[in-house]
Nucleic acid binder design. Structure first.
Lengths: 241, 241
DNA sequence: GAGTGGTCTAGACCACACA
DNA sequence: GTGTGGTCTAGACCACTCC
């Protein structure tokens, strides 16, 4: 279980930083020394430093933010993907985070291609869309693209500023949402989306696709979510039997 | 959505390989040219080649096997983590894979520390354990460590050679398993486990922890599974309402 | 033994962020 | 402008696999 005792330089670097993370010398969201500083302090080439940092990053223990440097990771947000709706605000506050989110774009578009298939419509129907990012303690963690069947929720876009989308569906349109299909896939976040999150290109992430239907079994919502892989864990608890 | 038109060398390399993957010149499990060959063919330094290969790897499109080289990835196995039991054999055959698995170690041990907590026992009870690896089309994809409450299934270890564990529980001990708790976390696979899978150290993976109880609400099984992150996707379908 | 990927060094220049 | 991380080259040697 312990680190193998090989004297690889990058393992030396990794242990050096891991020790500071464990001991609390580096607290969540603290900035690490610069790559050049580490290189000099540890007498290890900067390429090797970057190799070690890359491994710690994949282990979810440090992260990069833009080109501003490396930082110690915070705790992961635990959420249950089997639930119809993740109330990001409530959930993250319960777990001690300071959440924030930001609608990047919204509007109306036709359902074509993959979207048309997911909505299972023969014709390209109209959809509302909402693209947004979310952050925990100032760190961007997800980017989502949500699409809504426009004909069941006229005027939808003007209502979501104040209430969670699921609440709007229920209270304004009498639609109860049921999760019909859920897909979770580890991916590398492409540059379009990593730019939205202020992440370096090729950042590892989890892609989550949700298809939700109404009580009439009509598909009314499709979400595509991209989460930094190191920001969440998925946890489902089942009822006592 | 398209690759940015920056003329970075590593993007050139990435496109070069991606094209061969898309076109079918490289089929699943085909070997890529060696790093040195790619370096020469594309007039790009081997370090840069390795950078590009690393990105394709994180995207799940190629993989390494030991030190034997780089290979084109196959399809992912789709499975539903909300189900009590994943019958790896049946599931993977349904999806067109050739599965295999191998018990690496089994025996009896006391439940201490984390295991004791998960089993929610006051005393360190006895557990049977089974450690195994599984592969699809000859490629190792998971390593699992399963623990079973020994007192409810005496002689368990001698029975699992022929039947899936869930079937043994039901048929030989009258125990129906219910999944009580499920945790999925993206991680970097540590060297002990990546060695079991024949993977390079620090390979990205999914950690899946399951806690299962009997119909009497007694916790009887705890599993720890490590999957290559690029070998699976999680997909849940819910019943029609 | 030849060839593979894995580790490592010592440089260089660039794009971007921040003061 | 200065400093950061991001990209890139041209080497070198090692550990392991396969023939």
């Amino acid at each position: 279980m312990e680190e193998t005792k090989q004297d690889h330089q990058y393992l030396k670097v990794k242990r050096f930083i891991a020790r500071r993370l464990r001991s609390g010398k580096l607290k969540p969201h603290d900035k690490l020394p610069t790559e050049r500083d580490l290189s000099e302090q540890l007498s290890v080439n900067r390429n090797t430093i970057r190799h070690a940092l890359g491994i710690l990053e994949r282990e979810g223990r440090i992260y990069r933010s833009g080109r501003r440097g490396w930082f110690a990771s915070g705790a992961r947000l635990a959420f249950d993907p089997s639930k119809e709706y993740v109330n990001f605000d409530k959930l993250s506050r319960q777990q001690g985070f300071q959440p924030a989110w930001d609608v990047k774009e919204s509007g109306i578009c036709p359902a074509t291609g993959e979207l048309q298939e997911l909505f299972r419509t023969a014709k390209p129907v109209s959809l509302y869309y909402v693209f947004e990012t979310g952050s925990l303690d100032g760190q961007s963690v997800y980017y989502s693209e949500c699409f809504f069947l426009a004909r069941v929720c006229p005027g939808f876009l003007s209502k979501i500023v104040t209430l969670p989308m699921t609440d709007v569906f229920r209270e304004d349109y009498g639609i109860h949402l049921f999760q019909k299909d859920l897909l979770i896939r580890p991916v590398s976040i492409n540059s379009r989306i990593s730019a939205q999150l202020g992440l370096p290109a090729h950042y590892p992430g989890l892609f989550i696709q949700r298809v939700k239907s109404s009580q009439n079994n009509l598909i009314v919502q499709v979400d595509f979510e991209y989460w930094r892989y190191d920001s969440i864990e998925l946890r489902s608890q089942y009822d006592e039997i």
